[in-house]
């Protein structure tokens, strides 16, 4: 995988009247895993959404580049939200197919015919993860990827994260649970 870089320059993130992040400077290049920590409501999700290009920073600049060529967020980033975006009215297999995802990558093939709205929290998280895997982008941004998953689900996430980072990818992970992926260079960012 081509080496990707995410650069934040003097980034401020404001929600309502609260400044969540002020003057953040960060340059991250793959292969690397950044574990974003912090209490509830401290601004982890807002930071991740901003890094994914889904929200604009109040000040500062974010750039995404691959091999020193600056690209747009949709060309480089994939985002796993904390909440599921499984579509009611579709079966899990149909929902996955819409995004070009393969349920086998997340051990969900037996649930292909299950209506998306009837999936458990963990199954819905696996479905979201399959959609994310299908994008094959060099920068992964994951918001609470372990929440709701059983042991095999957590192992599956760790396995894919390890493979992604070791192939040169960059991953930003916000999680209350410790992120420990074998042999992967991990950096911590604690929001206070």
């Amino acid at each position: 995988m081509k080496s990707a870089t995410l650069t934040l320059k003097d980034v401020d993130i404001v929600r309502g009247s609260r400044t969540l992040v002020s003057g953040l400077n960060l340059t991250l290049s793959g292969p690397k895993l950044l574990w974003v920590e912090g209490g509830n409501g401290i601004g982890k999700t807002s930071l991740l959404r901003t890094c994914a290009g889904l929200s604009r920073p109040a000040a500062g600049r974010i750039t995404w580049s691959v091999q020193e060529t600056t690209l747009s967020a949709p060309e480089t980033v994939t985002f796993l939200p904390a909440d599921s975006y499984a579509k009611s009215g579709l079966e899990a297999g149909e929902d996955a197919a819409f995004w070009g995802a393969d349920l086998e990558t997340v051990d969900m093939l037996i649930h292909a015919k299950t209506p998306s709205e009837k999936l458990s929290t963990g199954q819905a998280k696996r479905l979201s993860f399959a959609k994310m895997l299908a994008t094959q982008k060099p920068i992964w941004i994951l918001d609470e990827p372990l929440a709701g998953l059983d042991k095999s689900g957590r192992d599956m996430v760790a396995h894919h994260l390890r493979a992604h980072v070791l192939s040169g990818g960059l991953a930003l992970v916000a999680s209350h649970a410790p992120i420990s992926v074998r042999d992967v260079p991990t950096q911590r960012l604690v929001l206070t």
Binding site: A73, P74, F79, P81, K87, T135
Partner: peptide
């Protein structure tokens, strides 16, 4: 969040 995911 589908709108944002489609954009990405």
């Amino acid at each position: 969040g589908t709108t944002g995911q489609l954009w990405l």
